[in-house]
Design a protein around this nucleic acid. Structure first.
Lengths: 348, 348
DNA sequence: CGCTGTCTCGGAACCGTTTCCGACCGACGC
DNA sequence: GCGTCGGTCGGAAACGGTTCCGAGACAGCG
């Protein structure tokens, strides 16, 4: 009995069936031009018949390239990361690269990852979706001997892809100013490890727009709440509404918080946008469902750009290792922003 | 000058530094007991100093195991898939397995995948998240020489993990019946390729519960709409509301549709749950935000179960290759279901 | 007709790890 | 004190590809 079928066919099997040498099969499979048309046809025929596919591990052993791009992400259950990865996949696939995911949900796993750095020899590039890496952790990644691309995080001197948060927030605040608002609240989002970089940038853009319009700054109009925490969000909104001069518009740093603000206001029977306008940032799926005006960023574009950047860095190690790709944002006007109420107006 | 540092350290480098042979380093790294304590300490010390990690590709070449579990998914931008993968990751990681993702968004990519089956030699197991595989495609996966685990899809004679959709839907309809409803509409979800398996099962559970309660079946109360399509959903709801005997409750096969139904009703100024109750299925994030009563399934549990099943099938090829893991659902009572209005009641 | 050059192809070394086998050593029983 | 045996370790052969080098065929050229 032939025990040959128990395992996958190898180069040698194809070579034998096609009546050529293993080297020729190898050349054929990689599409090198130094093989004559008829031999190529014979080899491809044999490979097809045997359902032959090259073993990545064997070829990577000698080429030194794994054909794998690793992704570091805190979770996959995230609108942003999911969308980015979904568009990243086909880009890598077209470049013959596979997508390996390291899910690092908690600090324990995270410590273990950075301790051993298992990606070290098992990928050609690393994409980092953890938005709050410390400088020390980044330094660990630096001696990884492979390109590391940061997404939505500015890493000094390292390649990264992100949207222009400052310009986006500035455009958002300008939109509200243009509608006539002067008392504009800003709701920050606090994560497990404090504010993220985007958080700072978006607040900065907001301040810039106010300054440009000559609207005086008021610390009381800035509050913070964790994402997805209804009670805390309600408290923050309550704080804003009980100000001596309450805001006529609320700019939330993230759509998830903006939607939470919407719910709080609806529950309090405060009409949006008649009495208060609400503006978000991200263009989360929920934003469309809630008809929320927001500043859109495209995780699909970010994913695509990151994939292409990784591909280029792999193919050309001499490429600029510190390239930054900054993507634009776009105002998505929907139903939650309007001119402020024309009631008693205290503006000088 | 020593060019040794240009590439990653190898077993031999560690061996030399520790003054032992490569075999001994290999044994040490794999935790085999046939190495004496002091030698083990020396080797581990050397490995740590050199930041050595074993090359998966080299070891898999000889062991025949890749240490990789591949996942086939139509997208990653999905609440269900994202959650399942997020909990699947740590399970695999604990078993020393890496997670490789094939994102197959469209039919072109799908055809290409099934044509070449690139996972063939490059993974130890495959997890399938595509909920609408044809029998022909499943057959292709059968000759993949590795365990294939189907998620949320019953594949005859093949290992799979899914929730008990029939029981879940039955419990849901019973809940509505218990509240006093007798006219209960059912909203099916149509996907790109028609109804999924879950779709049939959930409708079946609904019918069973009605039959058990002796409530007569009415075809007019079953409508279908694509997920995420506001207009079509509104039309379907409109069709229900204009029936001669309109329903007092709507059971939507998926939360996404249920939420869409909620929006349509709110827009039409129809109070929920006072005039109409709405029940969903899945316990999507949105369900909590919308305070939607629903039948909960846990993608985290499904992911975990699938990961463990894959791990077991890899470690023990003699294991039952057709094991089915059926997970329970749970009724999540929230604010969108209540007894039917006590107005003119035509019930005999 | 011989020499040179190009186009194809085969042979063999090599990538880094695992595994088999055998060698060595000390302890143990008789 | 000698043979045996368990416990450790080193040497070498794989695993399945890629790449370098050289061989052979054949055309072109003088």
């Amino acid at each position: 009995m032939p025990p040959a079928q128990r395992h996958h066919p190898t180069l040698a099997d194809v070579a034998q069936r096609a009546g050529v040498s293993a080297s020729t099969v190898s050349r054929t499979m990689r599409g090198l031009s130094t093989v004559s048309p008829d031999v190529r046809a014979r080899v491809e025929q044999a490979a097809r018949e045997l359902h032959f596919v090259v073993s990545r591990q064997a070829s990577s052993l000698v080429t030194g390239r794994t054909g794998v791009v690793a992704v570091l992400a805190p979770t996959l259950n995230s609108w942003f990361i999911g969308s980015a990865l979904s568009s990243l996949g086909p880009v890598l696939r077209a470049a013959g690269l596979d997508l390996l995911v390291y899910v690092i949900p908690d600090l324990t796993e995270r410590a273990a990852f950075f301790e051993r750095l298992p990606a070290r020899r098992n990928a050609d590039a690393l994409l980092v979706f953890s938005f709050d890496l410390s400088e020390e952790e980044s330094a660990r990644l630096d001696d990884l001997q492979m390109p590391v691309v940061y997404i939505s995080q500015h890493a000094a001197g390292r390649p990264s892809v992100y949207v222009d948060d400052v310009a986006g927030a500035r455009a958002g605040t300008r939109h509200l100013l243009g509608l006539g608002h002067r008392r504009i609240a800003f709701v920050q989002t606090t994560g497990a490890s404090g504010f993220t970089f985007s958080s700072h940038e978006r607040l900065l853009g907001h301040r810039q727009a106010l300054a440009e319009a000559g609207v005086p700054w008021d610390d009381e109009l800035v509050v913070a709440t964790p994402a997805g925490h209804k009670r805390r969000t309600a408290e923050a909104v309550g704080r804003l509404l009980t100000l001596r001069e309450p805001p006529t518009a609320v700019f939330a740093e993230q759509d998830e918080v903006a939607v939470s603000v919407l719910w709080t206001l609806r529950r309090a029977r405060i009409d949006v946008p008649e009495r208060i306008s609400v503006l978000g940032f991200d263009d989360h799926q929920m934003a469309e469902w809630s008809d929320l005006t927001t500043i859109a960023q495209s995780p699909e574009e970010i994913g695509r750009a990151a994939g292409e950047l990784a591909r280029d860095l792999i193919n050309d190690p001499e490429a600029d290792q510190a390239r930054h790709i900054v993507l634009p944002t776009r105002l998505m006007p929907r139903a939650t922003t309007a001119p402020p109420p024309t009631g008693p107006d205290h503006s000088a």
